Simulated assay, not measured.
Amino acid sequence: MEFLEVIRKRKTTNGPFLDQPVSKEHQHLLMEAASRAPSHFNSQPWRFVLVENKAIIHRIAELGGSSMERLIAEGRFFERYRPYFRFSEKEMEERRDGILIDQLPGPLRPFTRQIMSPGALGLLRTLGVPRVLGEDNRKLVAGSPLLLAALLDKQEYRPGELSGFYSVLGLGMAIENVWLTTVELGMGIQFVSTPMEIPEAWEEVKRVLEVPDDLELMAVYRLGYVPPERPRPRIDWKSDHRKRLSQFVFRDTCRTPEPDH
């Protein structure tokens, strides 16, 4: 693909992957892409774990599912992410950020705005939404042929110091290289984020991955080949919009927005 086409086609895969192992060749290409990212003084502070072991994947899947269920049931998910929910094409077109909640199971559609509000915990529990979302999350992770854990070397990653910032910046660029390369390889990728939001779950992920004291686990992703027709989850959203130039770019100083054309 042309490079800009790859950037424009980059997406997060919310649905299932093909039941097909990721080839060793493609795994190593992803890692080569990561290694080509810039880093402070070429320090390359990133470390990665490629996980194909089914028992490990299933354990992390359980942690992902139970974390999602707990975050929804306790209201923490909506409290934290409510500012990013959009409920109409008009709102999405105006804001051009966040996620458009455009797919819900039939019985939930009349309550779209209510379910995504902070005061809807009782309704959510009654409808069994936390359990449904938790189980859907567990299945997605469990059905992934490959997990990728991203870590930082603590010799470079020192939070509160510039080296800490540089390390996170470098890891972010390495992950973006991986993400873009999945487009070229016909693969998809998704952040397994919910265990990070429950401290004890994240500690268990570290234990399962046998993370040593000199490394810091930063993130886990699920990867695989995407099917030609991509079924959408029961509860899903779209996030195709991007801000206009005038909404995020300035000219010369922060006082002058860049015109859109």
Score class of each variant (00 low, 15 high):
residue 125 R to N: 04
residue 119 G to E: 13
residue 25 E to G: 08
residue 137 N to Y: 03
residue 198 I to T: 11
residue 144 S to P: 03
residue 203 E to T: 08
residue 153 D to H: 02
residue 118 P to M: 15
residue 7 I to A: 15
residue 44 Q to A: 01
residue 31 M to L: 12
residue 83 P to G: 11
residue 238 K to N: 12
residue 187 M to A: 04
residue 143 G to I: 04
residue 231 P to C: 08
residue 166 Y to D: 09
residue 71 L to M: 12
residue 190 Q to N: 15
residue 40 H to C: 12
residue 231 P to N: 07
residue 9 K to H: 15
residue 259 P to T: 05
residue 219 A to N: 12
residue 154 K to D: 06
residue 139 K to H: 08
residue 49 V to M: 11
residue 166 Y to N: 08
residue 219 A to C: 10
residue 258 E to Q: 12
residue 116 M to G: 12
residue 236 D to E: 11
residue 39 S to A: 08
residue 65 G to F: 01
residue 17 F to L: 01
residue 49 V to A: 06
residue 251 R to P: 00
residue 216 E to F: 13
residue 173 M to C: 14
residue 135 E to H: 05
residue 31 M to T: 00
residue 91 E to C: 08
residue 119 G to I: 03
residue 235 I to C: 10
residue 242 R to V: 13
residue 180 L to S: 10
residue 98 G to R: 08
residue 257 P to G: 06
residue 144 S to D: 06
residue 74 E to P: 07
residue 188 G to I: 00
residue 112 T to D: 06
residue 15 G to E: 04
residue 132 V to T: 05
residue 38 P to C: 11
residue 80 R to H: 15
residue 202 W to G: 00
residue 185 L to C: 09
residue 121 L to T: 02
residue 109 R to F: 05
residue 62 E to R: 12
residue 260 D to P: 00
residue 256 T to W: 09
residue 66 S to T: 15
residue 215 L to D: 02
residue 167 S to M: 09
residue 254 C to M: 15
residue 36 R to D: 09
residue 217 L to A: 09
residue 62 E to K: 11
residue 204 E to M: 04
residue 104 L to P: 04
residue 134 G to T: 03
residue 128 G to K: 00
residue 42 N to M: 07
residue 141 V to A: 01
residue 235 I to L: 11
residue 46 W to M: 04
residue 86 R to H: 14
residue 130 P to D: 01
residue 4 L to Q: 12
residue 109 R to N: 03
residue 254 C to H: 15
residue 56 I to C: 06
residue 134 G to E: 07
residue 25 E to M: 10
residue 208 V to Y: 00
residue 174 A to P: 04
residue 52 E to C: 11
residue 242 R to Y: 13
residue 41 F to C: 09
residue 119 G to N: 09
residue 128 G to Q: 00
residue 85 F to C: 05
residue 35 S to T: 02
residue 255 R to I: 04
residue 227 P to Y: 01
